[in-house]
Simulated scan of single mutants.
Amino acid sequence: MNDRREYIRTAMSAKVKVVHESLGEFVFSTRDISDGGVFIVVEGEPFEPKIGDQVTVQVQGLPVPAPVLNMVVVRKTNDGFGLQFDPE
């Protein structure tokens, strides 16, 4: 198997707000998370970023506001997008 992942993924379903500079603001569910990033499930939303686009992501539904994280779109599948934590 040709799995190039550097980090172990953990299944996690959470609501996250994703903001893209030109596409706008969306709320999606996550499928998994790792030390390197998160996978968001996109169903029926007009969200079509390009690989390399930057977004901000914030977990929703917590008792206090979660931090807003800078992320980069690194992968697209039929059901969503892989986002990588932006080291900058």
Results as ranks from 00 to 15, higher is better:
74 V>G: 13
87 P>G: 10
58 Q>Y: 07
49 P>Y: 05
9 R>E: 05
21 E>M: 07
81 F>E: 06
69 L>A: 01
87 P>C: 04
20 H>D: 06
15 K>L: 15
25 E>V: 15
3 D>W: 04
65 P>K: 03
14 A>K: 14
40 I>G: 12
31 R>P: 00
53 D>G: 08
37 G>F: 05
63 P>T: 08
60 Q>A: 01
76 K>N: 07
60 Q>W: 01
40 I>V: 11
82 G>F: 05
4 R>N: 08
11 A>H: 03
21 E>L: 14
21 E>R: 14
30 T>Q: 13
15 K>F: 14
45 E>L: 12
17 K>A: 12
40 I>T: 07
45 E>T: 09
79 D>S: 11
35 D>T: 08
42 V>S: 14
39 F>G: 06
2 N>K: 13
86 D>P: 02
20 H>E: 07
1 M>P: 02
22 S>A: 13
4 R>F: 02
63 P>H: 03
33 I>T: 12
42 V>F: 07
16 V>N: 04
63 P>R: 10
22 S>N: 03
3 D>A: 12
29 S>K: 14
6 E>T: 15
34 S>C: 03
45 E>H: 10
6 E>R: 15
61 G>R: 02
62 L>W: 09
75 R>A: 06
67 P>A: 00
72 V>N: 04
42 V>Y: 02
36 G>V: 10
3 D>Q: 01
43 E>C: 07
63 P>Q: 07
82 G>R: 10
35 D>E: 07
54 Q>L: 14
17 K>I: 06
36 G>M: 05
32 D>P: 10
48 E>V: 04
23 L>I: 00
38 V>P: 09
5 R>L: 08
70 N>L: 03
59 V>T: 13
60 Q>G: 00
60 Q>H: 03
16 V>R: 10
43 E>W: 04
6 E>F: 08
74 V>N: 00
9 R>K: 05
81 F>H: 04
52 G>N: 00
50 K>Q: 14
19 V>D: 08
16 V>F: 05
77 T>H: 04
56 T>H: 05
61 G>Q: 00
73 V>L: 01
